[in-house]
Design a protein around this nucleic acid. Structure first.
Lengths: 211, 211
DNA sequence: CCCGCTCGTCACCGGGCGGTGAGTAGGAAG
DNA sequence: CTTCCTACTCACCGCCCGGTGACGAGCGGG
């Protein structure tokens, strides 16, 4: 292959620090989302960003700093992916609210490989970096729940926090399992029909506890 | 350190193939359970077993064969860890049955690091070996449910398979999250008091859907 | 023009990984 | 005692990892 002027121009480094930093950040998210946390590392990110790994050390102080930056970006994930309002519905009961929250969470998690990988990472490894990542995600989600529920209160005698955790845990587990194995506990999780069944079960569960 | 006769005896190889195979199998489970699936590999297992990794290739045909063997042993896990009978209770309703199943599954999973690691592994990676491992676990669990439920039937109109999957998914996710991060969705999962809250929420959920 | 600073690259290090071929030790059979 | 088979070990390969020190390339300010 004869090097043309165009490739020469394209392969020339940008020499713009902020732009390069952005490229590295984007590459980090892409590697994590597409190749999984197992493949996540200095070399993989640098390769993806098309620059030398030394720049990651210079600009972010190594992997941990880069992860921290990604976690910072993640704070906006909830706002980007889950609608803030009630979608034009009048949520009469706490059960209605939780049903809507559960279904939104299900679809949002299914659609976002980056957050899925972070969730799976959290289950696989305990390190400070991962912990900070998942804590950012967890805090954002909790804040969103608080904001959304407004003045609605569950029936007395029901520990809403723990019950909601159970429901969200079920959703997260099913979504994570669907990606890698496509099934859980004898239930296939592939087609949209499968997910409709899950939605139905979730609705029944939610209204079973909250009325 | 002067080599004593005792250490000499202890470090001497066993020269008994079946016994060495058993040592390797035990080492594999120990590495997986204690160090996690990330650390699982030929070198780690051989180091743990105190023999050369070559033996793993010779006796098991490499890592995949060894994993398969572990999966085979896993088929007996359910029978070992979850009681077959109804614990002297008369399970009058399907809801009672599922409550008991849920609580048993919760405790069994909390107590078994090996199975926890396999479950986490399944969420982190998609490979044939891991798939076979988790399928063995899944099949065993499903068979146990079938055996236990006997002739009890849930209320009509409720998809018991999917609903049960939702409940088991919640339990698995909460247990896995508790090990690495000690919390999920704002709920701390450390003390037995925390788990009592979870048990309460699970009971409410189960009897909410099944009556 | 050249200095100096920043952006970027390259080569290299030690170490752990999965994988393999060649060689050793030790007990049973003759 | 020798033979032979089997259990077992050792040394080595190539690869990729995270991490670092030294070197060039380009651009703005004197």
């Amino acid at each position: 292959m004869i090097p043309s002027e165009e490739t020469d121009v394209l392969e020339r480094p940008v020499r713009d620090r902020s732009q390069t930093e952005a490229r590295i950040r984007a590459a980090a998210k892409a590697v994590l989302a597409e190749d999984g946390f197992k493949a996540f590392g200095i070399n993989a990110v640098a390769r993806r960003a098309g620059c030398d790994k030394q720049l990651i050390y210079r600009y972010f102080g190594g992997l941990s700093g880069l992860i921290e930056t990604v976690g910072g970006d993640l704070g906006t994930w909830v706002r980007e992916h889950i609608p803030e309002d009630s979608g034009g519905m009048f949520l009469l009961t706490y059960g209605d609210l939780m049903e809507r929250l559960a279904l939104l969470f299900l679809d949002a998690l299914r659609a976002d490989p980056l957050v899925r990988q972070i969730a799976a990472w959290e289950l696989a490894e305990e390190s400070d970096e991962v912990r900070r990542l998942s804590e950012a995600r967890s805090r954002a989600l909790a804040g969103w729940i608080d904001r959304m529920k407004g003045s609605l209160q569950p029936a007395k005698g029901v520990d809403a926090t723990v019950t909601n955790a159970v429901i969200l845990a079920a959703i997260q587990q099913l979504v994570l399992a669907s990606v890698t194995s496509g099934r859980f506990a004898g239930v296939t999780l592939k087609s949209e029909k499968d997910w409709d069944k899950v939605r139905g079960a979730l609705k029944r569960v939610v209204h079973g506890v909250y009325g």
